[in-house]
Design a binder for these strands. Structure first.
Lengths: 155, 155
DNA sequence: GTGAGTGCAAATGCTTTGCAGACGT
DNA sequence: ACGTCTGCAAAGCATTTGCACTCAC
């Protein structure tokens, strides 16, 4: 469902309603707006960004509600939360292909990498420590190519 | 130097002073206290914990000073900072063997794992993306063995 | 109608900052 | 003596919470 076309919002809304109903939670406009924001602007959104997106709709959603809603959606397993360092946490619809993040500590740029890179590590960690690492949204901190080159150029 | 015995604090202090002087920064009691805390209670300390530790010494250090000091020490390369999810950041003396963290999302327990597990991943990321991942303090979130077993038992 | 969900405002927890004074060099 | 570092208090930011009201069921 994510990766769905931005057009056709009524269809999107009813698909999302269906999903919520199946999980046995109330369907409120606020919840639909949050899910729509995540579906349409697929990618990593902060709570603040979601609120700004929904502000284009009639009465803007309260930030506290966005947080509570996201919390709920995360426990329902519809949404994942990632904390990419200091700033605000980002949220994403489950359903996109699993991926992880390379976060540059100098310039802050975030690059998505496929889960296949990390699969071997996950297998090892499970084998050696009985630890089941999550298959999405691991943050790997370091220095990106551009910043490494810049560093070299200076010297 | 880290991994040094807790006893013999005068020696520790002068070794640390030496280190600071070599880096061309002022040697203040506060900086020594912070470094001592990290050296003696080797492991991951939060700014607050460091302050509490130094509070056993004469006038307790101000929390703001602890943060500023840690900031300075991180840029000097003497200390590393790790953000293990929502709570407070933790700090550690550089010099311990590189390691990473398995963070259980249910019970919060943190297990240290050797860098060798992650070395292959680092090599791949460098090769494929030109990204130099840091060799310490990656946080891997997931579910620990105990919580997995508990989960099974319930069903 | 009832309880879950919402808005609002205030509180929280971690961290940063402005400023005046203290102290390492 | 100089400039850096510290303490203090206040601000900053992301997130949470208490409470009264509203709305989905």
């Amino acid at each position: 469902m994510p990766g769905m076309l931005p057009a056709n919002e009524p269809q999107l809304a009813s698909a999302l309603s269906e999903r919520l109903r199946h999980l046995g939670v109330r369907v409120t406009p606020q919840r639909l707006f949050v899910l729509e924001a995540l579906a349409v602007r697929s990618g990593h959104l902060t709570a603040e960004e979601i609120m700004r997106w929904t502000a284009r709709r009639s009465p803007a959603i309260n930030l506290a509600t966005v947080y509570r809603t996201l919390d709920r959606l995360v426990s329902l397993g519809l949404v994942t939360q990632t904390d990419l360092g200091g700033g605000a946490a980002t949220f994403e619809l489950v359903g996109d292909s699993p991926h992880h993040h390379l976060v540059c500590e100098r310039c802050g740029i975030v690059t998505e990498v496929d889960d296949s890179l990390v699969a071997a590590l996950r297998a090892q960690v499970l084998d050696r420590y009985g630890f089941r690492a999550q298959s999405r949204h691991m943050a790997i901190f370091g220095t990106c190519r551009a910043c490494l080159e810049r560093e070299h150029a200076v010297r």
